[in-house]
């Protein structure tokens, strides 16, 4: 009897829960999640399970942020890293797009370079660092080399797969209507692969960021990676965490505010959603 009553009350409570409203908003859910993470972090820091130089609390990291943006050159650090990643990314996208088009066009290139691209993608960016340092020295060129090498592969594979997945009828219809050679690429093949290309650009950007941080860890000068390395050598964990948070926030902004919106716009325009 009591169990039945309890079940009924539980069922009624579940039924009474609001199905929409503020609680179901993804933004609110994310903010609550972040708040919970902060609380857990603070609780662990307060428990002093680890010394503060190994695990500083949120307040200490916040102080580092305030100091970094007012007294130190965090903005310049971010700017330098962004400049490097954008330059490397643009170069990678151009190289990747051309490589993808070539591989999709010629089967012998697909059998050789195309097959190696997937293998290259499996190599983590940090594995290229010794090679880049030996070839280019401790310089920006080494970082750009690693960024380009990492970021061009998703672009190339995306373009290749995009071209290969264009319905044959689309190409044939265009050929019958007079499109050929470069015009076929400009008016048909390239527009047809844009949805796939945008998804690849998003992936390339993520790879570029990872490669940038890996590369900057080992070279001198301003940069988020170098600040991480500096934090490690000075045992300044709050700077290390601050830098990690900067990378996460920049990644979130670029992915959610730019790439996801662009992807959604393209998919809508191409009638894919």
């Amino acid at each position: 009897m009591l169990r039945e009553l309890t079940n009924r009350i539980t069922a009624a409570k579940v039924a009474d829960l609001p199905r929409g409203g503020l609680a179901s908003s993804p933004l609110v859910q994310r903010l609550v999640f972040l708040f919970v993470l902060l609380v857990i972090w603070q609780l662990i820091a307060n428990a002093k399970l680890y010394p503060s130089y190994l695990l500083p609390g949120p307040e200490e990291v916040l102080k580092t942020f305030v100091w970094g943006f007012s007294e130190a050159d965090f903005l310049m650090v971010i700017f330098e890293s962004l400049r490097r990643v954008i330059v490397g990314y643009i170069a990678a996208v151009i190289i990747g797009t051309l490589a993808g088009l070539a591989v999709a066009r010629y089967s012998w290139l697909d059998n050789t370079i195309g097959a190696s691209l997937t293998a290259l993608q499996a190599i983590p960016s940090v594995a290229w660092v010794p090679l880049a340092l030996l070839w280019f020295g401790i310089s920006e060129a080494a970082v750009l080399f690693i960024v380009i090498l990492e970021a061009f592969i998703p672009a190339a594979l995306g373009v290749r797969s995009g071209v290969m997945n264009i319905p044959r009828e689309i190409i044939r219809a265009a050929q019958c209507l007079g499109a050929k050679y470069l015009d076929l690429y400009v008016r048909v093949i390239f527009p047809a692969i844009i949805p796939q290309l945008v998804s690849s650009l998003r992936l390339s950007w993520a790879f570029a960021w990872r490669a940038l941080i890996a590369g900057e860890l080992f070279v001198s000068g301003l940069g988020i990676g170098q600040q991480l390395e500096l934090g490690r050598s000075l045992a300044d964990m709050s700077q290390v965490i601050a830098m990690i948070l900067i990378v996460a926030v920049l990644g979130y902004i670029s992915d959610n505010l730019f790439f996801r919106s662009l992807e959604s716009y393209v998919r809508r325009s191409w009638g894919m959603q």
Partner: peptide
């Protein structure tokens, strides 16, 4: 080769969605 003097209509339309 394909030529504008012979155009094709396909079952799946083959329109350019962009």
């Amino acid at each position: 080769r394909p030529d504008i003097s012979r155009t094709l209509v396909f079952q799946e339309y083959a329109l350019f969605p962009w």
